[in-house]
């Protein structure tokens, strides 16, 4: 357990760096804003207590906010994502329950489980974030398409990252 803490901290720093320095510079007609930094919250161990998840969610969003001059917007979206995470894990519980060695990753829980888990939570995050950013219903069609496209691309990126960095290790163990 102790040995895993530095891994989470390094992942946090890498994700925020990738988000702020690379993905925030991706533009395509203003329609396309993928956010991958919530992956940090998504990959925390199953046994993380709810209150700690919330604090980490807030902290993680706040860090991205500092770099994007969007005070509070990422923090609000990520805190809500952290709040829904335990419910989502409960909903997706396998028939046999979670094993002690299970982790919320693609290699441990399988593709279908992981994609459902990521899709729902990332949708909540993007929905809240883009609604707060617009704060009006004037361009509702534009915002809805922005949410839909960005969510899809974020999910695709997150699944790709999973295969790139975490896929191999598990496969060699099997």
């Amino acid at each position: 357990m102790y040995s895993r803490v530095p891994g989470h901290i390094i992942r946090f720093m890498l994700l925020v760096f990738a988000q702020v320095m690379i993905l925030n510079n991706v533009h395509l007609h203003g329609l396309f804003n993928p956010y991958i930094y919530p992956l940090f919250i998504l990959l925390l161990p199953f046994e993380t207590p709810a209150w700690f998840l919330l604090f980490l969610g807030f902290f993680c969003g706040f860090t991205v906010d500092l770099f994007s001059n969007s005070m509070g917007m990422h923090a609000a979206a990520t805190t809500l994502l952290a709040f829904f995470r335990p419910y989502m894990i409960g909903l997706l519980k396998p028939a046999a329950g979670y094993q002690p060695e299970d982790k919320p990753t693609i290699s441990s829980m399988g593709f279908l489980w992981f994609v459902t888990y990521v899709a729902f939570l990332m949708f909540i995050h993007h929905l809240v974030f883009f609604m707060i950013e617009t704060l009006s219903f004037r361009q509702i069609i534009f915002v809805i398409s922005k949410i839909a496209i960005s969510t899809l691309i974020s999910i695709a990126l997150i699944v790709t990252i999973q295969y790139l960095f975490y896929g191999k290790r598990k496969r060699s163990e099997l």
């Binding site: 709810a50 209150w51 604090f55 807030f58 001059n69 005070m71 923090a75 709040f83």
Partner: peptide
């Protein structure tokens, strides 16, 4: 407790957003 904590943190977020909206920002930022 998780729900109350959520409310608390979201309130902080909203306060941050409102504060950041004006032309001037707090010194600590």
């Amino acid at each position: 407790h998780a729900f109350f904590l959520l409310l608390m943190l979201e309130t902080v977020c909203v306060a941050l957003m409102i504060q950041n909206n004006g032309f001037h920002r707090a010194a600590f930022l």
